[in-house]
Amino acid sequence: MNIIKITALVGLATLVSACEDFQVTQQGPDKSVDRGIDKKHLSQLEAGIWVDPNGCDHWIIDDGVEGYLSARLDKYGKPVCSGVAPPTQTVGDFKKGSTGLIGDPV
């Protein structure tokens, strides 16, 4: 019985160890690099704005394989609620082939 448990534990540890194939910094995974096929830095991708149900803005990037979303904050760390679009709508050319029109669904 113990040999079965040990074998299962070693097999599980081997499977889990293969999950992290990207660079890890002291704070965790480096999320400033696009992990898709094109391997571009996020600063090279076009960001759009998605307005949440409360009316506050979020930066959004979609390269077709991965997507990124983060709150749009002012210099004091408070949410920006600009009214650039109705709630739950997007603005900007944030994905390949996007028309970038107001009202594109997320």
Rank of each mutant, 00 (worst) to 15 (best):
F22L: 11
Y76T: 13
D63L: 11
L45T: 02
S43C: 07
H41T: 11
K40D: 12
T99F: 06
T25R: 14
S98I: 02
L42A: 06
C19N: 09
D62M: 10
G103H: 01
Q23K: 09
L15G: 04
M1R: 13
V80R: 06
C81G: 05
P86Y: 01
Q89D: 15
L69C: 13
G48W: 00
D74R: 14
V33T: 09
Q26C: 04
G48H: 01
L101R: 12
I60L: 14
I49Y: 04
M1E: 07
T88N: 13
W59R: 04
A18W: 12
A13C: 10
D93K: 15
K40H: 07
D21R: 14
T7H: 11
G36T: 09
S17G: 01
D38Q: 11
L69H: 06
G92N: 01
V33P: 00
S32T: 13
I49W: 00
C81K: 07
D38L: 13
L42G: 08
V84M: 05
A71S: 11
K96D: 10
G64V: 11
S32W: 06
G64P: 08
L69Y: 14
T88D: 08
D21P: 06
I60P: 02
V65T: 15
L9Y: 10
V80Q: 05
D62F: 07
V91Y: 04
S70Y: 14
W50H: 09
T88S: 12
V10G: 02
A85S: 04
P79N: 10
D62R: 03
G77Y: 08
C81Y: 07
A18P: 05
I4Q: 11
E20R: 08
T14S: 15
E20W: 14
I6R: 09
A71T: 12
V10H: 10
G100E: 05
